[in-house]
Design a protein around this nucleic acid. Structure first.
Length: 419
RNA sequence: CGCCUGAACACAGCUAG
């Protein structure tokens, strides 16, 4: 069992859940009994592969085999639910584990706190903290880091600072992740200057920032349209660390969105020369930049070159190019890419359909637009307020108000709130 | 009865009105 466990853990870490599971079945077939640790490893693998269903069904498996799930098993699943945005499910599991006589520990609570923070429910996260304290379950640096980051992102920087000050009293020292979370949280709340000021203060105390620290700040400055400062930071980070693919991609996006496509292309070349390989995000960012600048031909060239460089277009790639082609009303090409994406085995999502609906409207192909809206539902893709708005806008322009209204009703019937 | 071993938690980048 030990050897199988090692092997299976390897497959899980490599994101090869099919092989992990096949090995698992195989070991059972030859007469070995899996234990709670092995189940927990597999459950964690499925959670990280975003396959909650499979993870949950393993828990059921355990019950039928009379293998008791322990606090790690439950915590793993709870964390998986939280990361998938299913906090309700996480809460259900939490009650279930308590009912099963298994007490949550600090990791369990940390996962819940992080889940609430990620969804912006910092009040709920703080309630969990209070609950921990009342149960003498001592928060750790992880607890505080999650909360501090979440509070900043929610615009509650002063609460975050209070917690930061409270940490030493609880016997925890903030570490680089705590500070990076704080800096990133401030950036995401558009308080980029505060974040930068904080870094300067920390530097005076001997803090050594890393590439995440700088990537957060560079992204922050790009998003508040201060690309010059972003570029300056990019130059200034060298004393501490080197930019990586994320740093480059962030800056390329900033350059693109301030209209500096040529500088963006230079950055792209520079990173290649530095031996840092662009990944799918990098290509998507540059593709979007070219599209926004209406350089559609170059965009289509980029689609080709990414493939030759071994980077497969993904859903975002196709959505980006299809959107551009719809905007310039080259629906023929848009549908060509739609076909190509099907061939690649990529399923359209609500973005794909929404841009196509709008494109069809723009091309005066209203009947097809309506058809597409209907067919997306049968494909298992639920239209959202953006999709409906595309159709409703168009019908209003055509002065077909009662048709527009009927879509409006349809939208509400589908549980989609108007804005 | 004690000890030891394998599993879980916090930080940065991409798409539509």
């Amino acid at each position: 069992v030990a050897a199988y466990t090692t092997l299976i853990r390897g497959f899980c870490k490599a994101n090869q859940m099919d092989k992990a599971y096949a090995t698992f079945r195989n070991m059972i077939a030859v007469g070995n009994k899996p234990d709670v640790v092995l189940y927990s490893i597999l459950i964690d693998g499925y959670c990280k592969a975003k396959n909650l269903k499979a993870a949950l069904s393993l828990l059921d498996d355990m019950k039928t085999c009379n293998i008791a799930a322990n606090v790690v098993t439950y915590s793993t699943l709870i964390d998986g639910c939280c990361k998938a945005g299913q906090i309700d499910k996480a809460n259900i599991l939490l009650s279930e584990m308590i009912k099963a006589g298994c007490s949550p520990n600090v990791v369990t609570y940390n996962s819940m706190i992080d889940g609430f923070c990620q969804s912006g429910a910092t009040d709920m996260a703080l309630k969990v903290l209070a609950e921990m304290e009342s149960k003498e379950c001592h928060p750790t640096v992880v607890t505080y880091s999650s909360l501090i980051c979440g509070l900043c992102k929610a615009g509650k920087a002063s609460d975050a600072c209070k917690l930061l000050k409270k940490m030493p009293k609880s016997g925890c020292e903030p570490n680089i992740i705590t500070y990076n979370g704080l800096i990133d949280g401030l950036c995401k709340a558009n308080k980029v200057d505060d974040a930068h000021g904080l870094l300067d203060e920390l530097l005076k105390t001997g803090f050594t920032p890393n590439v995440n620290t700088y990537s957060s700040l560079i992204d922050g400055y790009c998003k508040i349209k201060n690309v010059d400062l972003a570029v300056k930071l990019f130059g200034g980070m060298r004393g501490f660390c080197s930019p990586n693919v994320i740093t480059y991609t962030t800056l390329i996006r900033g350059l693109c969105s301030s209209g500096q496509i040529n500088s963006a292309r230079k950055m792209f070349d520079e990173m290649n020369n530095a031996g840092i390989h662009p990944d799918i995000y990098t290509y998507n960012v540059l593709l979007k930049g070219l599209c926004r600048a209406r350089r559609s031909e170059e965009a289509r060239e980029l689609m080709k070159s990414m493939k030759t460089n071994g980077c497969k277009p993904n859903l975002v790639t196709y959505n980006t190019i299809i959107d551009e082609l719809c905007k310039i009303v080259r629906l023929d090409l848009a549908f060509l890419y739609l076909e190509e994406m099907k061939v690649d085995g990529i399923l359209s999502d609500v973005y794909t359909y929404s841009v196509l609906v709008r494109g069809l409207c723009k091309g005066r192909r209203h009947a097809e637009a309506k058809e597409l809206l209907n067919s997306m539902k049968t494909q298992g893709c639920t239209p959202n307020v953006v999709t409906y708005s595309a159709i409703i806008d168009e019908l209003c322009k055509l002065q077909e108000l009662h048709h527009a209204l009927s879509y409006f009703e349809d939208m509400k019937d589908n549980g989609c709130a108007p804005e």
